[in-house]
Design a protein around this nucleic acid. Sequence first.
RNA 1: GAGCCGUUAGCUCAGCUGGUAGAGCAUCUGACUUUUAAUCAGGUGGUCACAGGUUCGAUCCCUGUACGGCUCACCA
Length: 490
Amino acid sequence: MEETKDLIQQRRDKLDEIRKFGVEPYPHKYEPTHTSSAIHQDFGEIQETPDDTQPIRVAGRIMTKRDHGKSSFAHLQDGEGRIQIYVRRDKVGAEPYKIYRRFDSGDIIGVEGVVFRTRTGELTVLASAIQLLSKSIRPLPEKWHGLQDKQTRYRQRYADLIMNPEVKDVFLKRTQIVQAIRDMLNSQGFIEVETPVLQPIYGGANARPFTTYHNTLEQPLYLRIANELYLKRLIVGGFERVYEFSRDFRNEGMDRDHNPEFTMLELYQAYADYHQIMALTETLIADTSEIIHGTTKIHYQEHDIDFTPPWRRVSMVDAVREYSGIDPGPLSPDELYTAAVNVGVELVGDETKGKVIAELFDAFVEPKLIQPTFIMDHPIEVSPFAKKKPENPEFVERFEFFISGMEVGNAFSELNDPVDQRQRFLEQANSLAAGDDEAFMMDEDYLRALEYGMPPTGGLGIGIDRLTMLLTNQYSIRDVILFPQMRPEN
RNA sequence: GAGCCGUUAGCUCAGCUGGUAGAGCAUCUGACUUUUAAUCAGGUGGUCACAGGUUCGAUCCCUGUACGGCUCACCA
């Protein structure tokens, strides 16, 4: 950055001056006795007279500095908040005060002193000793408006986190959300496992993969688009309740709810069907909201959302009929196709009836599903790992759930009939041959696993990024991913 | 991939109909021992994203490029 060179040069000059005082600007350690919030807790009652009996040490980044000749106020920011410090030349000594005058906002310092309350009532550390812990040579953004530019905020998340406490709060909440879900699953006997990110055969979802190459094996490998097939192998192996927070990679477009790498929770429960998984899903998410917010009613963007179970359950066909006015039930494939085209759905012409139903759903229903809603019983053509409905083999036992017009999760009664599964793979292989680059690859080893026998199993995937968006009221997935994907700067 | 919008000092932003750029904060100098957007006085700081074009003259108009945002498409 040529433009900042002057300001950086000024700070480098100060660095040299500080060294001339015999001070090492980048020491190896410091031992604080208190965090900022611990000071606020322990000394909340204190009045204007300093408590000389309890000296403390606190460390943090100088965020503001107000020099007044022979004394100075500053605010330190640490991992938990801010605390004001008061530095007086007569308390720290003439030379240390000279050194302190060369400190800038952004510098990280340690302060030893006693706690008191100023005339205006602010809890403050009266410094007796100050130590530079790290000199900052790049100026912080402006103190009042913070860092606003989205591009800089995403590219330099560190600066965003320093300047915008509400951003830090979002990511703290994200961690709490994951932790809450993990705790709940663990308490229900689920086992957390790790499965391959590098896969010789990708599968479990419809998406184009990222491809890489292993030099020693001399073979292409794919970054996983899902971990579904590995987790179900573990069900075959006898782990009856498994889950994984999986970083998945899909080589698709990016927008407000898609990042090329994202986090999905997948879980599988032996002997359960999708009705049980529905109950687990609504409880899991309602309880997560309760843990994070103390309530199951939240505000997301312009909507009030109520996670309180039970959520609405509606079949995809019924939802299409309700929102599009087209009842797919009695129509022939040709009639449905014509009806869909007439209401403006763009189709290429070779869609099956089930595909058209799914297209009508995407166009007319999905954006309208604001309150948590289970959409059930998808067409079989779009659901190659779900079990057929016993009474109607054109549809499967599957559900997706939608909140605020966004798909947040996907689940089914897992297909465990190896012969049926092979047939579904073959249909996918035909699509692949016909040019559908998002169709599945045949996975013989997965079929072999199913041939050993997989118990009836319910499976679930939840988009953790999207769930975090909802629970932190963030509009874009980039605001819940610490380092979202960006084009190179130059 | 398409459309619309944006890119001006370290940061946040103004800049009218085309006449070679401003503010606040930051920074620097000086004053100041209870301030907190400290205050007061005085300074420094710009390839107006980049490259072309039109024009006597372009931050401003036109074209292209880069990056970003939003919307749509693709996509769960």
